[in-house]
Write a protein that binds this DNA or RNA. Sequence first.
DNA 1: CGTGTTATTGACCAACATCAAACTTAGTGG
DNA 2: CCACTAAGTTTGATGTTGGTCAATAACACG
Lengths: 249, 249
Amino acid sequence: MTSPEMRKRELSRLVVKLRTIADLSPTAEQALLALPLRLKVFEENADIVSQGDEPSECALVVDGFACRYKVLGEGQRQIMSFHSSGDIPDLQSLHLRVMDHSLLALTPATIAFLPHGPLLALTREHPDIAAAFWRDTLIDAAVFREWLAGVGRRSARQRIAHLICELYTRMRAVGLTDGSSFELPVTQAELGDALGLSSVHVNRVMQELRRDDLIVSRGRHIAIGEWERLQAAGDFDPEYLHLREQRAA
Amino acid sequence: MTSPEMRKRELSRLVVKLRTIADLSPTAEQALLALPLRLKVFEENADIVSQGDEPSECALVVDGFACRYKVLGEGQRQIMSFHSSGDIPDLQSLHLRVMDHSLLALTPATIAFLPHGPLLALTREHPDIAAAFWRDTLIDAAVFREWLAGVGRRSARQRIAHLICELYTRMRAVGLTDGSSFELPVTQAELGDALGLSSVHVNRVMQELRRDDLIVSRGRHIAIGEWERLQAAGDFDPEYLHLREQRAA
DNA sequence: CGTGTTATTGACCAACATCAAACTTAGTGG
DNA sequence: CCACTAAGTTTGATGTTGGTCAATAACACG
């Protein structure tokens, strides 16, 4: 399960992801690929890490789709981010002892747990890895800001279009898209929890987006209808993702 | 203006702030106090840093009150954080070249600009400073998450109560409160832009909070009426602020 | 084929927005 | 000390987005 050969395969997803946001020296990449890890498979809807935990490892998403969420006082849920292969959604646990939110598998998911010790050692020995990790958490924060602006000030239609643009752009950067389409393995209720909307309203607005040919969606599969118009409908500008290269679709 | 003696006074605010979230060795503190800086005074409502800028310095709030904000497509504004003395709201610019939002002085404000070069050198030489800075940006992100949850899922009343609890707790930690009261030099329109509400609605709900004796406010001065009940009304739990010590009021 | 989950629809409702006007307050200059 | 002004707060009337509830239809999976 954790032979060096296997590790490389799992960890290469991390390297691919980090390359989209930072410059890594070949030595740094080798060092990353040599990290020890513990693989675990989670079923759909299982908590990977829970609010209140004090993790001693970080969770690298190898396969599947995950999200971070909070449950508020009256039982309402807010989803705060979505994560796919290559992401380390709880990288912040390296420096924040207690989890202030939870991490959930939205699909069956393979997670590689990377112990804090070796990760911290890596950041000490490789300044460019430290910078890449720090940058990753900073981009995380930038995405939260954008979501905050969306939920605070954008209409339901804009929010949904914006989220689709964001996910498409991010997944495209790590090679998880297929032409102008990608898998969004998320229910409308989950979209609602991410966007601060009810599932009913998400449903109605998505129908509207389909009617307007901005998207073509069947189940969990989404295809972009007209990228330019979708971007405009969502007031989307990829700047905040701070990707190293941005190419137009 | 930037004699070593003066610097210590400005930079001591930074040290006070960092102490609330991290352990700093005496040598680290000395190193921080020796940072070079450039002081500048901004008038109310002046941009300190603007979206699109590529800063070569970080802005330390020495005096006054500032916020980060974005302007969206249709001219609406979303305020994403408030900052007081000791905060470095754009610490992320150390690793993200382009500002994806702006930083504004909400009151007349004294800002100390700290050049990136010496800051980065400091993080290389003092791992505990690097950790403290990283931790600071991670707490930033944690606050964004909490705001996102609030704007997404909490009622207007809860949001306002929550924000007052947060600001009181943070300002108390750095010694900017006076008993159970503090200065909140922010208009109701600005509160609305932070909470995703209209200024009219902010007004009505604040009247309600006063009527219920949760707060006592006169102009920009706010006093907590009953801390326990205010916390309950705002569904507030300070955990997400990741302060080193939390004491009850 | 049955069963549970998700998507869709319709009727109705509430929270909050918008607009516009009046009222306070804090400065400012005479 | 008193107008005068501009900014901010408060109020009322009215409108809209999106929520809630409940039922039905469409799928997916064993």
